[in-house]
Simulated scan of single mutants.
Amino acid sequence: MDLTAGIAEIAADSRSGATALAERAAALLTAAQSLPAEELPALCVALAKAQPAMAPLLRLANAVLLAAESHPASNAATRAAAKEFMSDLRRHAAQASRQGATVLPDGRVLTHSSSSLVAEAILGAHAVGRRIEVFCTESRPGFEGRALAARLAAAGVLVTLVVDAAAPALLSQCDLLLMGADTVCAAGLVHKVGTLGLAVAARYCGVPTYALATDEKLLPSACGEHPPVPERDPAEVLPDAPPGVTPLNFYYDLTPHSLLDGILTEDGPLPAETLDQRLDTISVHPALAGIWRE
C-alpha cells in the first residue's frame, strides 16, 4: 500500500465522516507495520494533519504510537491497537446515539451538517414513537445536509430542508438544536462552519443546544487548545470567480462551551469540569504533543 498516497486521499476527502476516515487510517497504519520503527511517528503526525479538525484521526495515531512505544519489538501490538480503537469507536458511537435520543423532544429539532450520531439518535427516537419534526440545513459547500434529509425522510421522519442562511431565523420555532462534533477541545466544539452562528441564535431564542460526541473526538490538552481550520478550494464556493473576488471557503468553526447546554457522549452528559479533567489526563505520545501549538 502506498502510504503517502493514502494519506493524501484522506486529506482530500471532503465527503466522508470521521468514522469512515478513521477506518481508512486504521488500514494505513496496519499496512505501515513493515516501516522501520523510527519512521512511524512521522507517518502518524502526517495522518493527524491530514484532517486536523477530525480528532479521531489524531487519537487513532496516538493509540498506535503509544502501543509501539510500549511494545517496540511487536508489530502485532500496533495492529491490535488500531483494531481496538476502531472497535471502541463503533461501540461508543452506538451508545452516544442512544444518549442523544434521550434529549429529543416531541417537537421540532434543527440539525446542521450530517452527523451519523445525530441521524441514529433521531431514527432511534422516531422508531419508539417520538413525534419529531426535523429542520436540516443544506450545509454548504458540500450540501451533506441534503443526504441526511433524504435518509430521515425515507424512515418516515417529517423533514424540512433549509438553506444555511435561513436556519438561525427558524430556531425560534424549534425545541432543540442538536449537532454532531468533529472535535471537542478545551476551547470548545469544532464542527461544520455555521455551527457558531446557530449556537448564538439558539441562545438568543432560549433553545437548548447539545452536541453528540464519543470519547475518540476529545482532543487532549497536551496537543493544544484547538486544531487549525485550513481553508479549502475557493472554487467549491464560487467556480470561475470574477476578477477581484476571492471566495473564502472553510469547513469548520469553533463554538465556545459557554454557548452549549451540554456535550453528550457514550457515558451521558459531560460536565465542563469533567471535560477539562478528561482532556488533561489523556496520555499523548511525544510526537503528537503540542502538534496544534506549532
Results as ranks from 00 to 15, higher is better:
109 V>N: 02
168 P>S: 09
64 V>R: 05
116 S>F: 01
95 Q>I: 07
119 A>Y: 00
14 S>R: 15
175 D>Q: 10
179 M>V: 15
166 A>D: 14
98 R>H: 05
209 T>G: 07
55 A>Q: 13
179 M>P: 11
267 D>E: 10
220 P>H: 02
71 H>V: 12
102 T>H: 03
85 F>S: 06
34 S>G: 12
177 L>C: 08
15 R>Q: 15
266 E>S: 02
165 A>T: 15
43 L>K: 11
273 E>G: 09
111 T>S: 00
74 S>I: 08
236 E>Q: 11
92 H>Y: 07
250 F>A: 11
284 V>Y: 03
44 C>V: 14
61 A>I: 14
293 R>N: 14
27 A>M: 01
212 L>G: 02
196 L>H: 02
100 G>D: 01
69 E>G: 11
236 E>M: 13
61 A>Y: 11
172 S>N: 12
19 T>Y: 13
117 L>D: 02
102 T>M: 05
163 V>I: 12
1 M>E: 09
50 A>Y: 13
77 A>R: 05
128 V>T: 14
124 G>M: 01
167 A>Q: 06
235 A>D: 13
194 G>N: 01
88 D>R: 06
237 V>C: 02
163 V>G: 06
173 Q>I: 05
239 P>C: 03
133 E>A: 07
81 A>G: 08
258 S>Q: 15
182 D>F: 07
122 I>D: 02
93 A>H: 03
261 D>V: 14
208 P>F: 06
205 C>W: 08
30 T>S: 01
162 V>S: 06
170 L>P: 07
68 A>D: 12
293 R>Q: 14
23 E>W: 04
135 F>M: 08
25 A>G: 15
15 R>N: 13
121 A>C: 00
281 T>H: 04
257 H>D: 12
95 Q>W: 06
18 A>P: 13
74 S>L: 07
175 D>C: 10
178 L>D: 02
73 A>M: 08
58 L>G: 15
242 P>R: 02
169 A>G: 14
219 L>E: 04
213 A>G: 05
212 L>Q: 01
212 L>N: 03
224 G>Y: 02
294 E>M: 09
247 P>M: 11
242 P>H: 00
154 A>E: 12
183 T>D: 10
51 Q>K: 15
196 L>A: 01
71 H>W: 10
32 A>H: 01
210 Y>G: 05
71 H>T: 15
243 P>Y: 10
131 R>M: 08
5 A>P: 04
113 S>H: 05
135 F>V: 14
290 G>T: 03
105 P>Q: 06
82 A>F: 01
39 E>M: 03
88 D>T: 09
6 G>V: 02
204 Y>W: 10
